[in-house]
Amino acid sequence: MPLPSRSDALALVHEWTASESLRKHMLSVECAMRAYATRLGEDVELWGITGLVHDFDYERYPNASLGADVEHPAEGVRVLRAAGWPEELCEAVLGHAEYTGVPRVTLLAKALFAVDELTGLITASALVKPSRAVADVDVAGVRKKMKDKAFARGVNRDDIIQGAAALDVPLDEHIGIVLQAMQADAVPLGLAGLAPPPSTPPVGDA
C-alpha cells in the first residue's frame, strides 16, 4: 500500500482524538518532522505523516495503564499495520516511546523521538509569554526553561538531549530547527499569539 495521504492521516487523528491540545501537539511534531526531512534530504511526506499520527491513539490508550503491549503506541500501530501503513512509519511510532523497547534504528525513528518532547517544551514556552506567541520564543529561552524542572514538568528533558545526540545535532541547533519550523506554522498550531485589542478612536473623533 502506498503512503496514505495527509488528509487520510488527519482524518485518522480527528477520528481518534477529541483533545484540541493533543491534536495541535501532533501538528507541531508533523511540522518539525517535515523541517528535519527537508534538512536531511529525506521523504518529507513520510516524515510529516509519521509525526502527524504518532500519538493518534494516546487519548484512548494512555500509557502505563495496561502494559506496553496493550497501550499507546502499540494499539495505534496495530491499527496502522492492519490498514497496510508503511512498516518504517510503524516502527518509528513504536520507537518514540522508550517503554516499548523498540530500538530506533532509522533516521525517521531517531528524529521522531528527538522532536516529540521538544515541541511540547516550545509550546509551553510560548503559552507563558504575554503574547502567547511562538514568535517571541528564542533558543536561549527554551534552554532556560529546560533547566527549570518546575516548568512543564511532563516534558522529559533527557529525551530532548538524547534525541539531539542521536541525530548528531548540537542541542542549540536542534532547538533552533524545531523552533523555526513551529514559528513558520504558528497559525495552525494555535501559537500565533493573542489578537490585538480593538483600536479605540481618539476622544472627539467618534
Rank of each mutant, 00 (worst) to 15 (best):
M1D: 00
P2I: 01
P2K: 01
S5P: 14
S5N: 05
D8C: 02
D8Y: 00
L10W: 09
L10N: 04
H14N: 13
E15Y: 02
W16F: 11
W16M: 14
T17P: 00
T17I: 08
S19I: 02
S19K: 02
E20S: 05
R23P: 07
H25D: 12
H25N: 05
V29I: 10
V29R: 03
E30C: 10
A35V: 04
Y36P: 04
A37G: 06
A37K: 01
E45K: 08
T50H: 04
G51I: 09
G51C: 05
L52C: 04
V53C: 08
H54M: 12
F56D: 11
F56K: 12
E59H: 04
Y61Q: 09
P62G: 08
P62H: 04
N63D: 15
S65Q: 14
L66V: 15
L66F: 14
L66G: 13
G67C: 07
A68C: 09
D69A: 14
V70E: 15
A74W: 03
E75T: 08
R78I: 07
L80M: 14
L80H: 03
R81Q: 01
A82C: 09
A83G: 11
G84K: 00
P86Q: 08
P86W: 00
E88V: 13
E88M: 07
L89G: 01
A92M: 14
V93N: 00
H96I: 03
E98C: 09
Y99M: 04
G101N: 01
V105P: 03
T106V: 10
T106S: 15
A111V: 09
A111N: 03
V115N: 08
L118A: 10
T119Y: 05
G120P: 03
G120R: 02
G120W: 02
L121N: 02
I122D: 06
S125V: 13
P130Q: 06
S131C: 06
A133H: 07
V134Q: 02
V134D: 02
V137A: 13
D138A: 02
D138I: 01
V139P: 04
V139M: 02
V142C: 02
V142H: 00
R143K: 06
K144L: 09
K145D: 04
A150G: 15
G154P: 02
G154M: 08
R157E: 09
R157V: 12
R157D: 13
R157C: 10
D159F: 15
I160R: 01
Q162A: 07
G163T: 06
A164I: 05
A166T: 14
L167M: 12
D168C: 06
P170S: 10
L171A: 06
I175P: 12
I177H: 08
L179T: 15
A181M: 14
Q183M: 15
Q183R: 15
D185H: 15
P188A: 09
A192T: 01
A192P: 01
G193C: 08
P197M: 01
P202E: 01
G204Q: 03
D205I: 12
A206I: 13
